[in-house]
């Protein structure tokens, strides 16, 4: 578990003066070649899938290497096929699951985080330790009991089940990240609000919430990617015939494992949103991941 909400990468980036000048160390050719090879190892698999997904001839796609495909015809036909094969609907479903599951836990978590950080009460440490302990609890613990609970209470809507489950599973992390951040705000700011006669609710609403935007964003991005990329929770709770992208992709692998024109395009559709989030919000993404990678 990483304690800091903001990993030091963010800081070091702003302090280039701390870095020794390049003449001191200087990268020789050995390290450079090693790095180029490593970068290849981390891009080529995805690149191969990407190139393949555009190959128009599906027979060639599963008979010849994608590295020999130069000069072949490329088009979007694989994408339209897989979108029609259920991936399109699943894409909408993934959005429907991930966005509310990201936003709903935030407000409750922020209130709790404020109380843990700035209010004095009996059992404060003990209660917070519950959240810290639950950070690593395996989610498998919850599936059978929750399935029964949903049945008993009469919750049959798959989306509602997933929103609730992801809210519950994301809560320890949300409280943990936000409490660490809110707790690090300067004491004077909170005290001055109190002196001005602000109630806790006002302090929270007018002061804490706006100041906590970086931490809120870090959690939101982590939670969004977690729920978007989640396979297990959706597999278990979506019983009514609806699917999200990861489940559809896994099903395609299972049932049409040789149809690489479907799998390559399907995999890319499932990855496009997280990749966009990754490239556009990398700073926050790094923060959320490093603060939240302990999640069960």
């Amino acid at each position: 578990m990483s304690a800091q909400t903001a990993p030091p990468t963010e800081e070091t980036k702003d302090k280039p003066a701390l870095k020794p000048s390049k003449e001191d160390t200087g990268a020789g050719w050995g390290p450079r070649i090693a790095l180029i090879l490593l970068c290849a190892l981390f891009t080529v698999p995805t690149l191969g899938l990407f190139v393949s997904s555009f190959r128009a001839d599906e027979t060639l796609l599963r008979r010849t290497g994608w590295w020999t495909a130069f000069g072949e015809q490329f088009d979007l036909s694989n994408y339209s096929t897989v979108l029609d094969a259920g991936m399109g609907e699943s894409f909408i479903n993934s959005i429907t699951v991930a966005v509310p599951a990201t936003i709903i836990p935030i407000m409750a978590a922020a209130f709790a985080a404020y109380a843990f950080a700035w209010m004095d009460f009996k059992g404060r440490e003990f209660l917070f330790i519950i959240f810290v302990g639950l950070l690593v609890v395996p989610l498998q613990v919850a599936f059978i009991p929750l399935t029964q609970l949903f049945n008993a209470v009469g919750i049959t809507n798959d989306f509602l089940k997933l929103w609730l489950a992801h809210t519950g599973f994301g809560m320890p992390l949300a409280v943990y990240i936000l409490r660490n951040y809110i707790g690090s705000l300067p004491r004077e700011v909170i005290e001055s609000a109190k002196v001005d006669g602000a109630s806790h609710f006002e302090t929270f609403w007018r002061l804490i919430l706006p100041l906590s935007v970086p931490a809120l964003a870090a959690f939101a991005i982590f939670q969004f990617l977690w729920t978007w990329n989640d396979f297990l929770v959706a597999l278990i709770f979506m019983t009514g015939g609806q699917e999200v992208v990861t489940v559809t992709l896994a099903e395609l692998v299972g049932s049409r494992g040789q149809d690489w024109h479907l799998l390559t395009a399907g995999a890319f559709i499932s990855m496009i949103v997280p990749l966009i989030v990754f490239f556009s919000l990398q700073r926050f993404f790094v923060r959320g991941l490093t603060a939240g990678s302990v999640k069960g």
């Binding site: 989640d230 692998v253 390559t264 499932s270 990749l275 993404f285």
Partner: peptide, 18 residues
Amino acid sequence: IFMPMAISFVGASTIWLF
């Protein structure tokens, strides 16, 4: 090097099955 972290386990499994 960091990019694969954005990819789901299912997506990565598909990439490597390929």
